[in-house]
Design a protein around this nucleic acid. Structure first.
Lengths: 211, 211, 211, 211
DNA sequence: GCGTAAGCGAGACGGTACGTCTTGTCTTCTG
DNA sequence: CAGAAGACAAGACGTACCGTCTCGCTTACGC
């Protein structure tokens, strides 16, 4: 059996790689992920199909890389010591990205593709989700230690913060804007239970609306 | 011009309808949604492909109907007056469904298909999401009026409650169990902000376990 | 394992069948067999590729059928009782076909394809060679019985008559015309040995074996 | 403009040349010509593909050279003065080669490849057919002059002698053995016509020319 | 109670995209 | 600096399903 030699990344053609990612981004933004085909990418990039299959396992992986490359830098992750402000910044940047008519739907489609293709999901998790999650977890852990928030399972806290955003993007389709990000943060910080003695007006702390 | 006459539901064959849903459910649970094909459904149901296309717009729609029919009754929606208990019950039932190894992945795949197929999404929203959402919204509105929770946008509250569940099912893949449902409810009721005077652990880690 | 159901010939579309053969003949005559592709046939015939694969095992088989259909009727097989005249007629008609600039090269290419594809060879032999050979063999047998020719293995006689024609078409590439057909027949009837008075064919069964 | 410089044969690596021919022969004998690929030859010979393309125009040419080199020496061409014996020797040696299960099929495949690739045919004709044919033609001419055989077009005589062998190898697939070689020679020397005493001018009997 | 229109099982059809394969060229590295 | 290694562009291959269509057959309504 001729062992399925894997290609040598050192000899990879940077020209081809860039052309493929560019073509993929263009086609995806223009026509959507579903219309995207490997043939079209190859044709537009002036590249053989094999060259795509050599370096990516599926069209989803190519699109994921292309989209991530264009969007991830726009997610603002920072750790200034002011946990609430940091989280607010991150939530706002995410909500702006997800709410962007050019990118939001593409991200949703990518998630859809990943949900239907276990190997794509794995590919995306390894390269995107894990690093991001780790960063957030540490951030939250630090905040908890310093007493900035009540102790909770960090994962639960992250889920409660980011889950609602993904819920709107993927499930309900409701609008995503900065007010929403702030509202979510507000609820998570203060809770909605009635047995509270502190002044309810805290919610106004929403910070400066940027939009 | 022969107008594209739509079929007459009165003459629809109940035998065929049931056979199709049964075959679809069997095939989906056994091999997953991605492996499912219209041809396979038709073959297993002993039905012509045209009969499927006559009554459903796509394989996603058939699968959606089959899966929903098998799972929706297991979501417990109630309005006893005790808002927190009601929500806890609903969250727990949802978490149990989503965490079920047979159904969770299928629901996720269905969502994936819907994310990639706008018309399927529409079909599912009309027949599933809207009624459910309305019920929840009214429930929350009633609770707010009665002062059971602090006033908030009902949608935000719903998102914060259910978003984390969907987040785990669709995005992070983390485990879904009753403890998680309770933890989410806990955070949402009390918040995690530090300026609190009430006793931290009060809310009892979840009340009576239902399983 | 889903047994590879074979299609039902009764439901075969005559329209598609004819369109495919016509397209194949056109393309082959115009561009040659090597340039022929299944894609091109499908496109020109207005037919799905699968429809071709459903009824023919390879492009060679389609081309064989198309070419045979156009050429076989031009081979004149007759049995008038005058063996020599019959054979001369057949040789001449074959030589005219093989020498025809439109068909000769195509026939040669088909033979080439068959030589490289055992299954195509089998397909062609079953549907063309066997029936033809049988006819010739009977013809020769009858002639031998009636004493029209000296007794010989019928196969050898057929080989000596037709072999030279195929030799020119496939191997030497030398010209094929009626004079050549007659010359071959001539040699086969009279032989070229110089001692024409010795008793017929028994001659020697081979001389010294070299191995 | 960088003229398409052709390689300098003087600097050709003999090691590479031999390795390529050896690898080709091995692979062809083991798996057949159709399975042969340039990549496989290169890999097995431990040679770059470019090195093959530099010296041969196609895989057919490499295979032709490899096969010819292994088989041609086994064809016995001699001119002892006894024309019939010489021809018999040659026919027998050819029949043994063609009938050899290792080589016969490869020779047939090579012919097939040549029939589908005009340039390969040209390459083979130049390097193999022409020299061989010339030898045979001279041989026959000499025999005719000396009256060993009745005068005939030398080409026709050669065709009648060798055509049947190629016919069996390429077309009918019937068995090739020494008895067959002798039978062919037999028929060609004596003919099969029944009136063996008629005048040699019989060629005029050609009947009405139809073209 | 009979004709007719529709739904039905079956499956061939035109078509799209897939992922693989081989070819012949181009690029990079190594002895 | 020639040769090995192998990535590259190109494009045909055969497969899998798609959604439509055309067949007879059965079913049930309406005259």
């Amino acid at each position: 059996m001729p062992t399925a030699r894997s290609p040598n990344p050192a000899r990879r053609s940077e020209r081809a790689r860039l052309a493929i990612l560019k073509a993929t981004l263009d086609l995806t933004l223009r026509h959507g992920f579903t219309e995207l085909t490997i043939d079209a990418i190859a044709a537009r990039a002036g590249v053989g199909k094999q060259t795509i299959y050599r370096w990516w396992p599926s069209k989803g992986a190519v699109a994921a890389e292309a989209i991530m490359q264009a969007t991830l830098p726009r997610v603002r992750l920072q750790d200034t010591g002011d946990f609430v402000a940091d989280v607010r910044t991150q939530l706002r940047s995410m909500v702006q990205l997800m709410g962007d008519a050019r990118f939001g739907p593409r991200i949703a489609e990518l998630m859809g593709a990943a949900l239907l293709d276990r190997s794509l999901a794995k590919w995306m998790i390894e390269r995107v989700v894990v690093p991001l999650r780790e960063k957030n977890r540490q951030h939250i852990a630090r905040a908890t230690q310093r007493g900035l928030v009540h102790a909770t399972d960090e994962d639960v806290l992250a889920d409660v913060l980011f889950g609602p955003l993904w819920f709107r993007l993927l499930v309900s389709g409701a609008s995503l804007d900065i007010a929403y990000a702030d509202a979510v943060l507000d609820v998570v910080l203060s809770g909605v239970g009635r047995d509270r003695d502190r002044p309810p007006a805290r919610r106004a702390r929403g910070g400066p609306r940027t939009r």
